[in-house]
């Protein structure tokens, strides 16, 4: 009973040492300062336009702020989280403390979960520290609290997924530097790679037709865009179409103008599921991300929990059965929620 109530020693240790010194506070300050500057910049642009006589609707300001803040925060989280988790296990190996750790009764799975929780605590601190900044949006309106909550949830899922990827690389690589580089390269491959797939498909398509690619579903930026744009275009997009094309009536900076710039102009609000029994339906990209990211995180954690073992790495045990059931559960429930045809048919 005592063991159950006992906090994970790794979490206690990590929180004690991680929050020491100026660095964590400097990162937090820099992060908030960066986001504040983004907000300030957006406000200045609107202010300048208002001074030039453009009719500025308060909702536009809110939407512009929301879009810029959400995407900037995604960018920061995607690139800060691996920096925090990629050293989790490899640094123990580098500092030659790994042997000391595995000679204790602490199970490798507990080492891993402790490391993840400790690293994510810090990232969560970053995300939640920015919430007051995000509340400025509500002053201007134009964005529903529901959309704010959606963006926050996506941000959290993105942080966990990026963190898990970093953790997996950390267990695989012997050196922290190598783990960090591999993590960033993989993230870049996911973000830039999916974008290039879309570009290639757009370029190879017949002129005038709109192309949507499922590759978009993996990029956190594309997923976040699909949330922030929902707020920006009242009434929603036409099914299956690119949202932000067509001539704009006025060259005015707002969220829509931001979305007309590359790479956002190639992002889409939703993907069309033609195989749906109820006829083609459009699924917003972020909904795919809500399912894909937890699934990705689970698989990364599953792999890492094997690699982290000092011996008999790939021997299967009860934990593998639990993980398999968990993966199937998330995939099944997620697939049903997304109304993916194969899943729904299987479940029926």
């Amino acid at each position: 009973m005592y063991r159950v109530l006992q906090p994970n020693p790794i979490v206690v240790k990590e929180l004690r040492s991680r929050m020491r010194g100026g660095r964590p506070y400097m990162i937090l300050t820099g992060y908030l300062l960066g986001l504040s500057l983004v907000c300030f910049g957006i406000l200045r642009v609107f202010e300048g336009q208002a001074q030039n006589g453009a009719p500025i609707i308060s909702a536009h300001v809110g939407q512009g702020l929301f879009a810029a803040l959400a995407l900037a925060e995604t960018l920061l989280i995607v690139f800060l989280t691996p920096a925090v988790t990629a050293g989790a296990i490899s640094s123990e190996r580098e500092q030659l403390t790994y042997d000391l750790l595995i000679a204790t009764p602490l199970r490798p799975s507990r080492i891993l979960s402790g490391k993840l929780v400790a690293a994510l605590w810090y990232v969560l601190l970053l995300i939640f520290a920015a919430v007051p900044l995000g509340s400025v949006i509500l002053l201007f309106g134009g964005v529903s609290p529901r959309d704010l909550a959606k963006a926050l949830l996506l941000l959290l899922l993105t942080a966990v997924a990026a963190g898990m990827l970093g953790l997996l690389c950390s267990t695989l690589a012997r050196r922290t530097l190598r783990a960090t580089i591999i993590t960033y390269l993989l993230i870049l491959a996911i973000v830039v790679g999916s974008y290039f797939v879309v570009l290639l498909r757009t370029a190879s398509a017949q002129p005038g037709t709109t192309v949507t690619s499922r590759a978009l579903a993996v990029s956190p930026f594309s997923a976040m865009t699909s949330i922030v744009m929902r707020g920006a275009t009242p009434g929603g997009p036409a099914p299956g179409g690119m949202m932000f094309d067509g001539p704009r009536p006025m060259m005015m900076f707002d969220a829509n103008m931001l979305m007309n710039m590359p790479p956002f102009n190639n992002f889409t609000y939703g993907l069309i599921d033609y195989n749906n029994p109820n006829g083609p339906v459009v699924q917003p990209v972020y909904r795919y991300a809500y399912v894909a990211y937890p699934l990705f995180s689970l698989i990364c954690y599953w792999l890492a929990s094997h690699v982290v073992r000092p011996r008999r790495r790939w021997r299967l045990g009860l934990i593998d059965l639990v993980m398999l059931l968990l993966v199937l559960l998330v995939a099944g429930v997620g697939g049903y929620w997304l109304e993916i045809d194969t899943v729904t048919r299987f479940l029926r």
Partner: peptide
């Protein structure tokens, strides 16, 4: 060869 944790 053993290491020690910094900042502890």
């Amino acid at each position: 060869f053993f290491g020690v944790y910094d900042d502890l």
